[in-house]
């Protein structure tokens, strides 16, 4: 790449990137073409009808709100559940990683609770929390009879999301802290650092890549859990609910649009976090 101006180099890099990505699009395009050809002879709606649904995301569908609204509801549930999972899970995993005694104390309960599918807890959480939403918890009753996104934030839903997200966070954080090379801790000790200083300036930065990996896993899990949970009783909004409702009304165009959006958001979550984390994941490279 000698003798190129910086702008030429950028376009050259871009061209290369496109050339690398291009083969990946062959199959999806092929599927779209086949789908279009065969949709005429089956009950499956063609891609153009699904695109018709996707191209009006703010339009009300099946009188359960628009794609925007339902996606927003699912997203805000996930964000809140994740927030709680991270807020509780990170310190818990950190202490479990740092203290052998605490790890033993919590080992049985975490081992039992970890493999339990959050979906299995849905009926129980409906019994416990009913359909109480955050508007009622915070006493915002005047909002209750308006169409407000806070009305859709049922505590039970957020509870199972937090449940689904907290274990990857706890376990990865714990592994990260336990995996910090002993020589760093010893170096810090002999150089005069106290316990808290070591926690904050050695254990935490050294395990940050693992902690972040835990967050990524939690996001993926929560997105799967919310879709499944919304398809079950206990709510009447969210992209999963819309998906299930479109099944009951045999509206396959809406159903396929929902599936597409679920996949797209899953992709944005995992790629976005990967890119954001690269800054920290560089630590891994440094250590080698």
């Amino acid at each position: 790449m000698d003798g190129m101006s910086p702008s030429e180099r950028v376009t050259e890099n871009l061209r290369r990137k496109i050339r690398k990505l291009l083969p990946g699009f062959i199959l999806p395009v092929l599927i779209l073409v086949l789908w279009h050809i065969f949709s005429g002879s089956t009950m499956l709606p063609g891609p153009e009808r699904v695109f018709g649904v996707l191209s009006h995301p703010a339009r009300d569908l099946l009188s359960c709100g628009s794609l925007f609204w339902n996606t927003g509801v699912s997203l805000i549930r996930v964000v809140l559940g994740l927030f709680i999972a991270i807020l509780l899970g990170t310190p818990m995993g950190f202490i479990m990683g740092a203290s052998e005694r605490f790890r033993r104390f919590t080992s049985v309960i975490t081992e039992l609770a970890r493999p339990l599918s959050p979906i299995a807890l849905l009926p129980l959480s409906i019994i416990i929390f009913k359909d109480t939403s955050f508007t009622e918890v915070f006493g915002l009753t005047e909002l209750k009879y308006t169409k407000n996104i806070l009305n859709e934030l049922q505590i039970g839903m957020v509870f199972i999301l937090a449940w689904g997200g907290i274990f990857p966070v706890i376990l990865e954080t714990m592994h990260g802290v336990r995996g910090v090379r002993k020589v760093y801790i010893e170096a810090a000790r002999v150089l005069g650092a106290g316990r808290l200083f070591i926690f904050r300036h050695v254990l935490f930065p050294a395990s940050l890549p693992d902690i972040f990996a835990g967050y990524r896993m939690a996001v993926g899990r929560c997105w799967m859990v919310i879709i499944a949970a919304e398809m079950l009783p206990g709510t009447n909004s969210g992209i999963g609910y819309l998906l299930r409702y479109s099944y009951q009304l045999s509206r396959l165009d809406v159903m396929l649009a929902c599936i597409f959006i679920i996949a797209l958001i899953g992709l944005v979550f995992s790629r976005g976090l990967e890119l954001a984390g690269e800054k920290w994941l560089l630590l891994r490279v440094r250590e080698r």
Partner: peptide, 29 residues
């Protein structure tokens, strides 16, 4: 009194730059 220690393989903190590594014992105390 104060103690200094130099390890076999440096044991520098890989997530800190050179200056932060050198400042570590000062900050710790």
């Amino acid at each position: 009194g104060r103690l200094g220690y130099v390890f076999q393989q440096g044991a520098l903190f890989p997530w800190m730059n050179v200056e932060s590594n050198v400042m570590f014992p000062l900050k710790a105390t």
